[in-house]
């Protein structure tokens, strides 16, 4: 136990130790937090759905939760069910075999039903496009609010996308 505490103490807070990139991260994070405080009762619950990706995007989404980005401090949580979610974070070209599952996850999500399409494949089909096995972009299957480019998108780009989605709520909420 002492060894663990010692290691934790010696590691310190990495979330603040990288100046250049973290300035950007901090700035983005604060904007996300403000936006969420205004519009989402301080937190945004995200359900991630892999609709057929190569798993590269998943690695970078995972990275959002590591100590460097620590996305939870900005009020963004990944939840286990679409029923608990404000937003779906969808990756991959939508494989035809995942089409029904993605639609069901979308239906199960309560309003405002934000959808973030993350990664090149989710934006436009990427390297896989539309085929007998793939529906291509997420927008071909469910309505998309924000598309995040990149193959895969970096954690910072993902955070920007999440911020944009939280902001996009403004337009839909007034309807």
């Amino acid at each position: 136990m002492l060894r663990i505490l010692n290691k934790i103490l010696r590691t310190g807070m990495v979330s603040e130790s990288i100046p250049s990139e973290d300035d950007e991260l901090e700035r983005l994070g604060i904007s996300v937090k403000r936006c969420l405080q205004l519009r989402f009762g301080r937190s945004l619950a995200i359900r991630q759905v892999d609709a057929g990706s190569c798993n590269g995007c998943e690695l970078e989404i995972h990275a959002l939760t590591n100590a460097y980005y620590d996305i939870e401090r900005f009020g963004v949580h990944f939840v286990a069910s679409p029923r608990h979610a404000d937003a779906l974070l969808v990756t991959g070209p939508v494989s035809r075999h995942m089409e029904a599952a993605l639609k069901r996850a979308y239906v199960a999500m309560p309003s405002p039903k934000l959808v973030i399409a993350a990664g090149q494949c989710a934006c436009n089909g990427g390297e896989f496009g539309v085929s007998y096995a793939s529906c291509g972009a997420v927008a071909n299957v469910i309505p998309v609010d924000v598309a995040v480019p990149g193959c895969p998108p970096t954690p910072l780009t993902l955070l920007q996308g999440i911020l944009a989605a939280a902001g996009a709520r403004k337009a839909t909420a007034r309807r």
């Binding site: 057929g52 075999h97 896989f128 085929s131 007998y132």
Partner: peptide, 11 residues
């Protein structure tokens, strides 16, 4: 399995 079948061999 087979949910992420994207037709890689065909494309």
């Amino acid at each position: 399995l087979g949910y992420t079948h994207k037709g890689i061999e065909k494309i």
